[in-house]
Amino acid sequence: MSGAGQALGSLNGLDGLGRADAPALRVDPRAMIVTTFLFIAVVSSFDKYDLLGLLPLVLYPVSLMALGRVSFRRIARRLLVASPFAVMIGIFNPVFDGRIIAELGPLAVSGGWISFASILVKFLLTVSAALLLVEICGFDAVCFGLGKMGVPRVLVSQLLFLKRYIHVAADEAARMVRAHALRSFRRRGMSFRVFGSLCGQLLLRSLDRAQRIYNAMISRGFSGRIHLLRERSVRGGDILFASLWIGFFLLVRLYNIPLWIGTLVLGSLA
């Protein structure tokens, strides 16, 4: 299978756990969305040199993986795909920021290396939290949760249709590319002219399909809002889940817990 095909396959698997009959962790998507967004905001708010302060936040994705029985490999594989972007953002920090700000025994560590590491840790935490949100709740449930939280209906519908039809569009593109390849013989790649024409064709076909889907929707009484029969209501357990985690995030943000533990341990040793 091609790289694109594999990526689309993994998109298919995104809601595998959320859709399971008995998901390991039953939390209302809204509670998970609020918790995840606050987690991302708290992680992003740390100073670029405050690597130590970030570490306790690892507890959140690790706990979700354990409670939701999501395999580490599953998340790690996706993190690996996105990691080049984070590496590219921070790779030049050690070059431009050579100021020594920490010493690990005989090893002097520059601010650039610490900020680079901080970018990578922030990336791992935020992206894994977002992936776990979708893994545990399911992409569709997250979309409907967003809709219930006031996100515009148009945007929610767009997200749902994007996931539903990306495979259909990709299949169509793959068929066109194959048809091109079969008639290209030894010529490798695709000229800009052909590529432009292929993209245009794909757009026109997608517009046609969009019209047909819209026809199918209005034929069944669609008037701008997608209704769902099984809509969950927020329960006490969901509020408790969100409150406990948000409390923990704030605690970590306000107090440097690793430093506090370190001081405590060293104080007792002295």
Partner: peptide, 29 residues
């Protein structure tokens, strides 16, 4: 409400996350 239209390509007709939601789409509307 009186005419049920089944389109040529089922992929155009089945646009919801689950088959159940798709079949419920019309009655809910």
């Amino acid at each position: 409400r009186r005419v049920g239209m089944v389109f040529q390509d089922p992929d155009d007709q089945l646009f919801m996350p689950r088959v159940f939601d798709d079949v419920a789409f019309g009655p809910l509307n």
